[in-house]
Design a protein around this nucleic acid. Structure first.
Lengths: 143, 143
DNA sequence: ACATAAATGCGACGTAATCGCATTTATTAT
DNA sequence: ATAATAAATGCGATTACGTCGCATTTATGT
């Protein structure tokens, strides 16, 4: 199996180029999803248009996944570079916790099967209050 | 319990204004998620900036939910105006199927609980091939 | 090393989204 | 009802986002 960028690109019949490696590097250097623009900023040696084209390719190849927060897309590495996971985002402090659950995955597979749907990918985002914020915040007043 | 826009806004200490009602009307008149810009176009009597501010408020109050497709955010009414659901999107024909599953909801609640996380909202998006597309498309060649 | 196809950088463009501020509107108390 | 005041809107300007066509550069396979 391929497990590095080069083999994935080659397997897909795509060229291994410096810009693509640079974007990949940028993504590797962080553990949080980044705004697309932020990825571009952190990869100044690569033109913005190329960053977008690369990100589009990466997503198509499953190298990255994109999720939304507010109205802004955030992109991060996907499997096999990061274990499969989803996000739990605190509305108050903005912290992002990664979650993984086989049960969850099973349920999603089941739902897809039930609809004759061939599941290629999926995203799950939970939003609420993290442990510490829920403790430090005053309770909502019941009237 | 409140079940209409007016009571939700009032309960939240927000003003009931014509622009907000207009945006809400626009959202009510469709059953598919719309691009934010499209919502603005369909609500020409309201300034674009106000549409965005309204959408931001609506999302904070849980009146609407926003999901991403490609890199573009789509917004639609949430509960109680639409029954709680998620999306299954065909990569090939772009069709959107709504899905709902108590089991799925239970699993998400469990995961949140396990992390002491107070779950306020969540999104789930499945991507792949719908039944008809998977039948009409040629099978990928195994090499 | 060379030919060729593919990807990049660049510049320009159209759209999306945000901001500050004067004006208008909704709300609350009188 | 009406007036006071706090909030939301519209407007114009501005910034950021994302896309496109095309000349140039780079990777690839022979």
């Amino acid at each position: 199996m391929h497990s590095d960028l080069e083999s994935i690109l080659k397997t897909a019949g795509q060229s291994v180029t410096k810009p693509r490696q640079a974007v990949f590097e940028t993504l590797s250097h962080t553990d949080e999803p980044l705004k697309n623009g932020e990825i571009a900023k952190r990869t100044p040696q690569v033109d913005r248009a190329s960053v977008y084209r690369t990100l589009e390719l990466f997503t198509k190849l499953g190298i990255t996944t994109t999720t939304i927060r507010g109205w802004t897309p955030f992109t991060e590495l996907a499997e096999p570079f990061k274990p499969h996971h989803h996000h739990m985002i605190c509305e108050h402090c903005g912290s992002v916790e990664e979650i993984a659950s086989d049960t969850l995955e099973d349920v999603l597979t089941l739902i897809a099967n039930r609809h004759q749907f061939i599941l290629k990918s999926h995203t799950v985002e939970l939003s609420g209050l993290c442990d510490s914020c829920s403790k430090s915040l005053p309770q909502p007043v019941a009237s």
